[in-house]
Amino acid sequence: MIEASLSPLWVSIKTVLVATAITFFLGIIAARWMARYSGRFKSLIDGLFILPMVLPPTVVGFGLLMLFGKNGPIGMLLDNIGVTVVFSWPATVISAVVVSFPLMYMSARGGFEQVDIDIEDAARTLGASEWKVFWTVTMPQAWPAVVSATILAFARALGEFGATLMLAGNIPGKTTTLPVAIYFNIQAGHMDQALVQVLIVLVISFASLAALAYFKGRTKNANTIRV
């Protein structure tokens, strides 16, 4: 019984770690770009990036099926090279990335926007390339926001259910993540297994939020300069 409850845990851990890593980079690139972008389409792009957060999971799942399905544009492309996304493990990652991306993007963008342009300019006048400015000034300055963003994205990826179920389905040991397993266990009346899994999710989620609170307390005011 324990093994049956733990198999979704491994699937979830794999999915969440890979998804968080992807979201981390995508979110930072998008956030950095939008923080300094002031073109005509700013609100439009911003809305697109945040949209998955406010849409019902079923709508996100539907959209993903449209994209990755047999007749979807990306699905057809991948089909040519013999890859099927729907009902495969990568589908759990894709769903988790799409729903956790807005959180990563929003928090990180807030962090980047807080970075004083003069500080970046100071680095430039001191001979730093754009790449060096980003890694030695912008990132360290925005680091607290980037870390919170990553923790939030991690927690959200772990809790992803709706879109995952629609795109990845429920294949035990392959696409059955913890939230999906809990749902089907309850459906099947396996309350004891559901309970174990619920407790696992609770512990991980609570631990990540506690880490976030601890981290925030530690870096509080660390980046403010008294004038």
């Binding site: 004083d116 003069d118 500080i119 300019d121 100071a122 680095a123 430039r124 006048t125 001191l126 001979g127 730093a128 390339s129 000034v137 360290p140 300055q141 680091w143 660390a222 980046n223 403010t224 300069i225 004038v227």
Partner: peptide, 20 residues
């Protein structure tokens, strides 16, 4: 020429120190 190659020092009104 980009700023980094100009060899010009700049002192900002708000100091713009690297707080980290």
């Amino acid at each position: 020429l980009p700023a980094r190659l100009r060899r010009i020092g700049f002192v900002f009104q708000n100091y713009a120190l690297f707080s980290h």
